[in-house]
């Protein structure tokens, strides 16, 4: 399968290897939550809602010197074409929940919020590859919306390697090709990688190129998220000012 056309250099959907899909973020989509956001990477669409900081529900879990961060990831039954009932808490979602929690925990200033609890709910509305990254990006926006103190904004993007070419932001077809898929999460301003996942073998030199591409992707997402936040703040200012 030619995932990259050897004559034109385009991918199946018309992108060049180092191009990301169209991304879009929207803040404040769940009125009830303390913070919420919708994030799209191409046809992948996820929603994130944040509750907290609030009192720890199960006192046994309370931590004295920092906040307790919890995360629940799920996929809507209608998120893939075949409309399947998805059991909660299967291995895959438990794993992704954990990944998201750890990534978010690494950027929340939890020591400023002792004895409290922060709940992050992310749900995939439409899946087309790169759901992990989209979830992290949505969670970042939602946390910012909730006004939770963070070190930096954490963003994520994936990159793969097909047809001897590093490809940024794989969509579902590319992801199903079975090639390596590297997901990177990073604190953009601090230039620190906080998440790195890959389930395949890749020679070191190629891996470095692929990871570098994913890092560029993260930076681009960060740039965009910053704009969304700025725009959102301006609107808030408008409302308040008026």
């Amino acid at each position: 399968m030619e995932y990259v056309n050897p004559l034109t250099g385009f991918r199946l959907d018309g992108r060049r290897p180092n191009e990301m899909r169209q991304i879009r973020g929207e803040i404040g989509v769940v009125a009830k939550a303390d913070g919420s956001a919708l994030f799209e990477m191409g046809n992948t669409k996820v929603i994130a809602a944040v509750y907290g900081p609030r009192e720890v529900q199960n006192k046994g879990q309370q931590i004295n010197n920092r906040a307790l961060v919890r995360c629940e990831y799920s996929m809507a039954n209608f998120s893939t074409g075949d409309r399947r009932r998805r059991p909660k808490g299967d291995r895959r979602s438990t794993e992704i929940s954990l990944v998201i929690r750890q990534t978010m925990e690494a950027c929340i200033l939890t020591h400023l919020l002792p004895h409290s609890q922060i709940d992050i709910f992310v749900q995939v509305l439409q899946a087309d590859g790169g759901t992990r990254s989209a979830c992290i990006n949505a969670a970042t926006l939602a946390l910012a919306d909730a006004g939770i103190p963070m070190r930096d904004i954490v963003t994520s993007c994936s990159a793969g390697y097909l047809c001897s070419t590093p490809l940024l932001d794989l969509n579902y077809i590319e992801d199903s090709a079975g090639g390596p898929d590297v997901t990177v999460g990073m604190l953009a301003k601090m230039d620190k990688v906080t998440l790195l996942q890959m389930d395949a073998k890749l020679p070191m030199d190629i891996f470095e190129n692929v990871m570098q591409l994913a890092i560029e992707g993260c930076k681009a997402v960060a740039h965009y998220i910053r704009e969304v936040l700025l725009e959102h703040t301006k609107q808030l200012e408008c409302h308040r000012g008026a």
């Binding site: 959907d13 018309g14 992108r15 899909r21 169209q22 074409g81 075949d82 087309d128």
Partner: peptide, 9 residues
């Protein structure tokens, strides 16, 4: 199943 694919111009 219905398949939706992006097509960039």
């Amino acid at each position: 199943v219905k398949v939706v694919r992006e097509h960039y111009l």
